[in-house]
């Protein structure tokens, strides 16, 4: 039955599978969770691990995750790397340019709370959650690709609990 099996349980399946009746909310979040496009954006060593996750061995694509080089087309921002005070306004602007619904995954110690640059640092922002809301934190220095993949699945899980009505409309 293909797609019919994967739909939320309360989808009404017509005989033969030609027509289904379901909730718009469910079908929308389901499809979105299966095509999380992320912003191609990395600021330090964690970005190397992000690239490794995107490459063939770990293969982000099989989760429907494709990088987009424009914030206008992305659903997810993976903050991969150290954010300096000089870079912070740029990150904020990229986040502002993304369309709703948008999600943020903070990857690595630096993006979570300064990481190795937490103490005695004059230039590093102590956690990206100081400037933009973060949905999922993936700790590590850098996190392994498996951890990042799991983080993205968590974003998908969170996404599926949300209502379309909750999305902010500007």
């Amino acid at each position: 039955m293909g797609v019919n099996d994967k739909l939320p349980v309360h989808a009404e399946q017509s005989p033969g599978g030609g027509i289904i009746t379901t909730e718009l909310n469910k079908i929308f979040t389901l499809t979105q969770a299966k095509s999380l496009w992320y912003l191609l954006f990395g600021t330090a060593c964690c970005a190397i691990e992000l690239m490794a996750t995107g490459a063939s061995r770990y293969d982000f694509d099989r989760l429907g995750m494709i990088f987009r080089a424009s914030p206008r087309q992305s659903d997810l921002m993976i903050v991969a790397g150290t954010i300096t005070y000089k870079m912070a306004p740029v990150v904020k602007r990229l986040y502002d340019q993304m369309a709703e619904p948008r999600y943020v995954l903070a990857m690595g110690g630096c993006a979570i709370g300064g990481g190795p640059f937490h103490y005695d640092s004059y230039s590093v922002l102590q956690g990206v959650d100081k400037i933009i809301p973060v949905d999922v934190f993936v700790p590590g220095c850098p996190p392994r690709p498996e951890a990042l993949l799991q983080g993205c699945l968590e974003v998908g899980k969170k996404l599926r609990t949300q209502k379309i009505d909750d999305w902010r409309v500007r």
Binding site: K86, Y119, Q126
Partner: peptide
């Protein structure tokens, strides 16, 4: 050049420099 454009805390790599937001090592 390298610091943020609105930086107003002097020259941070001097040994006697004390920063506003710096968290000292415990």
């Amino acid at each position: 050049f390298l610091l943020p454009d609105d930086w107003d805390q002097g020259h941070p790599l001097r040994k006697d420099w004390v920063g506003r937001d710096v968290i000292p090592f415990p």
